[in-house]
C-alpha cells in the first residue's frame, strides 16, 4: 500500500475492520461490474454495429470505418462518466471495449464457428480498444469531459482504422476468382456460404466518396471522429444522469400495489401466512 493509498483511507474515515471489508466489496463489485459492462456494451454493439463487424467481407472503406467507432463510443462514454464521477476512476472506456472484445471472441468461437461452422477468418472482429485507452488517458490528463470529448473522442474515431488495418490489410490483397479480380475478404465470404446472408445485403461502398486519394477511407475516419465528439458528449451526459439516479420515492399507493402496505402491523401481531401456503 502506497502513501497515497493510506491518505485516501484516512480521508475516508473507515474503521480498520471496515477497510478490510471495503476491499472485499471492491472485489465483488469488480466482478459484478465486469459482467454488467460486458453485457451492456455487447448488446448495444450487436444492435447498432452488427453486421459490419460480424464478417470480414463487410469491413469496407466507408461504413465499417464510420459505424464501428460511433456505435462503441456511446457505451465507452457512459461508463467513463459513471466511473469518473463516482470514483474518479478513468477506466470506463477501456473496460467497456476490453470486455466487448473478450465477449466478441467468445461468441465467435462458441456460436459462429461452433454452431454455424464459419471459419474464424470469416468472422474476425475489429476493435476500438486503442481509442478507448486514449479516451481514458486524456480524461486523466485534462480532468475535463469537455476537453476529452474534443480531443479524446476525435482520436477515438480516427484511430480505429489504422489500429485495425495493422492486422487486416492482408485480407484486402487482390486475388483472382472465376476470372474476376476480388479481395481475399470477398473470397472468404464467397467460399464459406451464409445461406441467409446474400451478397447484395452487404451495405458497403455506396456513393461516390472517393475524392481524396481515390479512397473514402480517411474521409470516413474523419467523419467518424466528428460524429464521435457529439455522441461522446451526449452519452457522457447519460452517464452523469445515471450517477444521479435516486431511489423512487415509495408512497402508500405503491406499497399497497405490491402488497407491502400494512405488512409491518401484521408482522407485529403474529406470523404472516402466505397465500396458498399449507400448514
Amino acid at each position: 500500500m502506497t502513501e497515497n493509498d493510506r491518505a485516501i483511507l484516512k480521508v475516508s474515515e473507515l474503521s480498520p475492520q471496515a477497510i478490510g471489508w471495503s476491499r472485499t466489496l471492491d472485489l465483488l463489485i469488480i466482478v459484478v461490474a465486469a459482467f454488467l459492462i460486458w453485457s451492456v456494451s455487447h448488446i448495444s454493439f450487436l444492435l447498432l454495429g452488427g453486421d459490419w463487424d460480424f464478417f470480414i467481407d463487410w469491413k469496407d472503406r466507408q461504413y465499417w470505418i464510420l459505424i464501428i467507432p460511433i456505435t462503441t463510443i456511446i457505451m465507452a462514454a457512459s461508463f467513463q462518466a459513471i466511473f469518473w464521477n463516482l470514483f474518479r476512476l478513468p477506466i470506463g472506456a477501456t473496460a467497456s471495449l476490453l470486455l466487448l472484445l473478450l465477449g466478441t471472441w467468445i461468441v465467435r468461437y462458441h456460436s459462429w464457428e461452433g454452431l454455424a461452422y464459419f471459419p474464424i477468418s470469416l468472422v474476425v472482429p475489429g476493435t476500438c480498444l486503442m481509442g478507448a485507452l486514449v479516451l481514458d488517458a486524456i480524461l486523466v490528463l485534462s480532468r475535463s469531459w469537455l476537453v476529452t470529448g474534443m480531443f479524446g473522442a476525435t482520436l477515438y474515431g480516427l484511430l480505429f482504422y489504422p489500429a485495425n488495418w495493422t492486422y487486416m490489410a492482408g485480407y484486402f490483397q487482390p486475388v483472382m476468382n472465376m476470372g474476376d479480380m476480388t479481395s481475399v475478404a470477398d473470397l472468404i465470404g464467397y467460399v464459406f456460404p451464409r445461406a441467409g446472408t446474400p451478397e447484395y445485403i452487404r451495405i458497403i461502398e455506396r456513393g461516390t466518396l472517393r475524392t481524396f486519394g481515390d479512397t473514402p477511407t480517411w474521409v470516413s475516419a474523419f467523419f467518424a471522429a466528428f460524429v464521435c465528439i457529439f455522441l461522446y458528449y451526449l452519452f457522457w451526459g447519460l452517464g452523469v444522469l445515471a450517477c444521479n439516479a435516486r431511489f423512487f420515492p415509495v408512497g402508500e399507493r405503491f406499497k399497497s400495489l405490491y402488497g407491502a402496505k400494512g405488512a409491518k402491523d401484521q408482522t407485529a401481531g403474529g406470523p404472516v401466512t402466505q397465500p396458498g401456503a399449507s400448514s
Binding site: S22, D26, I30
Partner: peptide, 26 residues
C-alpha cells in the same frame, strides 16, 4: 497486445483502494 495494454491500464487503477474509500474522498 492491445488487450494487454488495456489490462495493464485497468490494473494500474484498481490495485488501490477503490469503491467506498474513493467515493468518500470525493
Amino acid at each position: 497486445g492491445y488487450a494487454l495494454i488495456a489490462v495493464a491500464w485497468i490494473f494500474w487503477w484498481i490495485r488501490r483502494p477503490l469503491i467506498v474509500p474513493r467515493w468518500n474522498a470525493i
